[in-house]
Nucleic acid binder design. Structure first.
Length: 481
RNA sequence: CGGGAUGUGGCGCAGUUUGGUAGCGCGUCUCGUUCGGGACGAGAAGGCCGCAGGUUCAAAUCCUGUCAUCCCGACCA
């Protein structure tokens, strides 16, 4: 029995003391991942992969609902293909892994392990697209990609990671732009309604945009330590790739034209965002819609008459009702031990059932987010849990939104900007002239990057915070993962 | 890629300064008593001390190299 109430989970470093350590403690102790023998590469264990499967399911449904189909393109990309789009190669060159040998023989052409699939997909689209009747092409693939990063952290940056990449081709510029925005909006809606994470949506600056894109749009989230995390991007590729790969079609008017393309993706990094937005001193706090286990049942004194039978009956009922529920009937662990364990693992609702409950035909529900305890008659259980999961979701979202608002500051001039950087954390909203020089200066001086030019613009001042020239946009600046 | 730290049973650590039989706590296994916020007793298993060289009669300990992880920077989803 824990004598000290503070120490529900004895072995997690507090967020205050060391946020990074808190993060690694959590991911290891809750069995999300383990380090592998390969530098910078992690094993995603079932509990972590379960979260990813739920993310996949929710997103995939949304992709299908917006007319997309899944396909799979090769892992290996011939060097000549990768090199076709100049900006694209230059952007990715430093982090490409190369295959030089196969079956013991040196290859005549090196193969890149895909860092992203634009080039190989474009090479195929050039073959498949002939007529305006072939358009639009709306494909997505779920796969792994490799980027040879110098510094790695589980979920946030690993050499190999899982993601989805959508690649579409359209007849007109307008249609491509519409698609770009539509998918960004899918990401934003998904983040808010499934992950319970509020996002700032906007456009990337020229400096920060995707290598080879015409323009890049992003959703940015704020972590509890005040650093921003890019959670999803949607690119309007324009005709850059269409021209170098010659993806052309014959239009109604008999003219041969190049297609307009988009690409968009989210990664397993989202799991890192979930941890760093919702987690607390006791460990993980999982949003109900992606939690691998939504209800954990802990039977109390279950050797006693009727307890386990009743628990099993309730378990079957909840499972049939569609909840992700598990019954922890291990007799090797005490009830109290299990409470702490499942709290650390972030399960949204704990269901306790003991001899006294069996007598009264009720159970005890305890919420992970606010630790509220409720006694619920068995016949009301399904409805109560359904509503409680909804409330937890809403509670998490509101809390995250409050956290973000409290950590979003406005700077009208450079003195104010400096002061905020030195004394606060989080997003800084400020006016910017649009010149990359000013962006660079802020990065050099403060290590802050322009996260995005938000769609929801405010006019905070007339002049650029940096150079004093006329301001064009309001920008969110932050330190970023 | 720079700066710092750490690698010792599954996990957390001590031992390294001053070389001399590898230890502690937790966990694991067996049996029993327990069970509404990390239970207790008795017994048991488990380690070529990250890896590779070197010095020495003798290396977890000293030297060289190497790999990995963590933290702080520069680069990136």
């Amino acid at each position: 029995m824990s004598k000290n109430k503070q120490e529900f989970v004895a072995h997690i470093t507090s967020r205050e003391e060391d946020f990074s350590k808190w993060y690694t403690d959590i991911i290891l102790k809750t069995d999300l991942v383990d380090y592998s023998p390969v530098r910078g590469s992690m094993v995603i264990k079932p509990y972590g992969y379960g979260i990813w499967e739920n993310i996949q399911r929710e997103l995939d449904n949304r992709f299908k609902a917006t007319g997309h189909k899944n396909a799979y393109f090769p892992l290996f990309i011939p060097e000549s293909l990768l090199q076709k789009e100049v900006d694209h190669v230059e952007g990715f060159a430093p982090e490409v892994a190369w295959v030089t040998h196969g079956g013991g023989e040196e290859l005549t052409e090196r193969l890149a392990v895909r860092p992203t699939s634009e080039t190989i997909i474009c090479s195929m689209y050039a073959k498949w697209i002939q007529s305006y009747r072939d358009l639009p092409v709306l494909y997505n693939q779920w796969c792994n990609v490799v980027r040879w990063e110098k510094t790695t952290r589980p979920f946030l940056r690993t050499l190999e990671f899982l993601w989805q990449e959508g690649h579409t081709a359209h007849a007109t510029e307008e249609e491509a732009q519409e698609e770009t925005m539509k998918m960004l909006n899918v990401y934003r809606e998904f983040s808010e309604n499934v992950l319970a994470i509020p996002m700032v949506a906007g456009k990337k600056t020229e400096k920060e945009k995707f290598a080879g894109a015409m323009s890049t749009y992003t959703i940015e989230a704020l972590m509890q330590d005040g650093q921003a995390l890019q959670a999803g991007t949607s690119h309007n590729l324009g005709q850059h790739f269409a021209k170098v790969f010659d993806i052309g079609y014959l239009d109604r008017d008999g003219q041969r034209k190049h297609v307009w393309q988009t690409s968009w993706g989210v990664t397993t990094r989202l799991i890192g965002a979930i941890i760093m937005v919702h987690g607390d001193e006791r460990g993980l706090v999982l949003p109900p819609k992606v939690a691998p286990i939504q209800v954990i049942m802990v039977p109390i004194a279950f050797h006693k008459e009727g307890v386990l039978d009743k628990a099993e009956a309730i378990y079957e009922g909840l499972k049939a009702a569609g909840f992700r529920v598990e019954l922890d009937d291990r007799d090797t662990q005490s009830a109290g031990w299990k409470f702490n364990e499942w709290e650390m693992k972030g399960v949204p609702i704990r269901l306790e059932i003991g001899p006294r409950d069996v007598e009264k035909n009720q159970v005890v529900l305890v919420r992970r987010d606010n630790h509220e305890k409720t006694f619920v008659p068995v016949e009301e259980l399904t409805d109560t849990i359904h509503n409680m999961l909804e409330e937890i979701h809403k509670g998490l979202y509101d809390k995250a939104l409050t956290m973000r608002e409290e950590n979003t500051h406005v700077a009208h001039d450079m003195d104010e900007f400096k002061d905020i950087v030195e004394t606060r954390k989080g997003f800084i909203k400020a006016m910017w002239c649009g010149d990359v020089g000013c962006e660079d200066r802020i990065k050099d001086e403060f290590s802050l990057t322009a996260r995005c030019i938000p769609f929801e613009q405010e006019k905070l001042a007339d002049h650029c915070i940096c150079c004093g020239e006329e301001a064009k946009h309001m920008v969110y600046f932050a330190r970023a993962y």
